[in-house]
Computed example of a mutant assay.
Amino acid sequence: MTAAVLALWRREVLVFVRDRARFVGVLAQPVLFWVLFGFGFQGAVSVPGSDASYLEYLLPGMIVLAVLFTAIYSTISVVEDRQSGVLQAALVAPQPRLAIVLGVVLGGTTLALLQAVLIGLLAPFVGLRPGVGGTLVAVGAAGLVGATFTALGFGMAWRLKTTRAFHAVMNVVLIPIWLLSGAFFPLSGAPDALRWVMLANPVTHGVTLLRYGLEGLPAGVPGTTLGLLPSALVTVGGAVLAVVWAAATARRPVY
């Protein structure tokens, strides 16, 4: 099973990296948004309880945006493999279906982490200089969010028959989840009703965990009242539940 997981992981990484347009597009979009929104709203948005610039506040959210899109859209290969017959060939191989799930999730998480690290290199330019501990927390947060959404993307791709349907469903899901995660505007400044929605959003906790890492432990996170431990527990729990759901979905017949 280990050999099958590693083979699928390698295939997912190679397919994505060789598609240069997709690779560059997923990387360029968050950076472009960061520059446009960061400079455009810098004088209009303030972070409660902090003198951090909006560019500094927005960077962790842009990293999460790259992670979400990379993780989700890496699983388009599941739909494409069904259409080409590759998925059916993998299913008749003498390997458990869990190997397919783990291979795809591992591949998508690896790609998401790669994009997160590349965008994270911009952190020193806005005054964010996390130490070793903070860097490990930030990388762990990005990896957990990547695993969560790769697994969710896998589950949706397993059920959907066309890439058009996959794009439509994912676009409806991804943007609201990201906007309501505290990535774009502070949690502490949101209206009460909206704040409860944001607290129920698992991505909010992933963004908060990433902020803790980038701001440098044990510093507080501007714009939020969430603690490090609760955010870590929710983020880990979300990743585990998503992988379990993907594994259960993979037991369904493929049409």
Results as ranks from 00 to 15, higher is better:
residue 46 S to M: 10
residue 12 E to F: 11
residue 43 G to T: 12
residue 251 R to W: 04
residue 87 L to S: 01
residue 165 A to M: 12
residue 155 G to N: 06
residue 89 A to L: 13
residue 69 F to E: 09
residue 196 W to S: 11
residue 127 G to F: 04
residue 134 G to T: 01
residue 19 D to R: 15
residue 228 L to E: 08
residue 199 L to V: 11
residue 121 L to Y: 10
residue 34 W to R: 08
residue 223 G to K: 00
residue 18 R to T: 07
residue 79 V to A: 00
residue 103 G to T: 05
residue 116 A to T: 07
residue 200 A to N: 07
residue 248 A to T: 06
residue 153 G to Q: 01
residue 243 V to H: 05
residue 175 I to Q: 14
residue 155 G to K: 12
residue 19 D to C: 04
residue 209 L to E: 12
residue 50 S to C: 04
residue 76 I to Q: 15
residue 72 I to Q: 05
residue 32 L to Y: 05
residue 63 I to P: 08
residue 212 Y to C: 10
residue 198 M to Y: 06
residue 66 A to G: 15
residue 144 L to Q: 06
residue 54 Y to I: 00
residue 178 W to P: 04
residue 127 G to T: 04
residue 205 H to V: 07
residue 107 G to A: 05
residue 244 V to T: 02
residue 188 S to P: 00
residue 59 L to V: 01
residue 187 L to P: 00
residue 195 R to M: 02
residue 231 S to C: 03
residue 154 F to I: 01
residue 249 T to F: 06
residue 53 S to Q: 02
residue 150 T to F: 06
residue 123 A to M: 02
residue 1 M to F: 12
residue 66 A to M: 03
residue 78 V to Y: 09
residue 80 E to K: 15
residue 160 L to G: 04
residue 228 L to C: 08
residue 99 A to I: 13
residue 83 Q to M: 11
residue 3 A to D: 15
residue 210 L to N: 03
residue 151 A to F: 08
residue 137 V to W: 04
residue 56 E to A: 14
residue 51 D to E: 15
residue 160 L to K: 08
residue 87 L to H: 11
residue 61 G to D: 06
residue 49 G to M: 02
residue 28 A to G: 04
residue 253 P to Q: 02
residue 153 G to A: 03
residue 129 R to T: 12
residue 155 G to W: 10
residue 204 T to P: 05
residue 227 G to D: 09
residue 234 V to R: 08
residue 64 V to A: 15
residue 165 A to P: 03
residue 71 A to K: 09
residue 18 R to L: 14
residue 71 A to E: 02
residue 78 V to W: 09
residue 116 A to W: 14
residue 206 G to S: 11
residue 142 A to V: 11
residue 185 F to W: 13
residue 226 L to P: 06
residue 109 T to R: 07
residue 181 S to W: 07
residue 201 N to K: 12
residue 13 V to F: 13
residue 84 S to C: 04
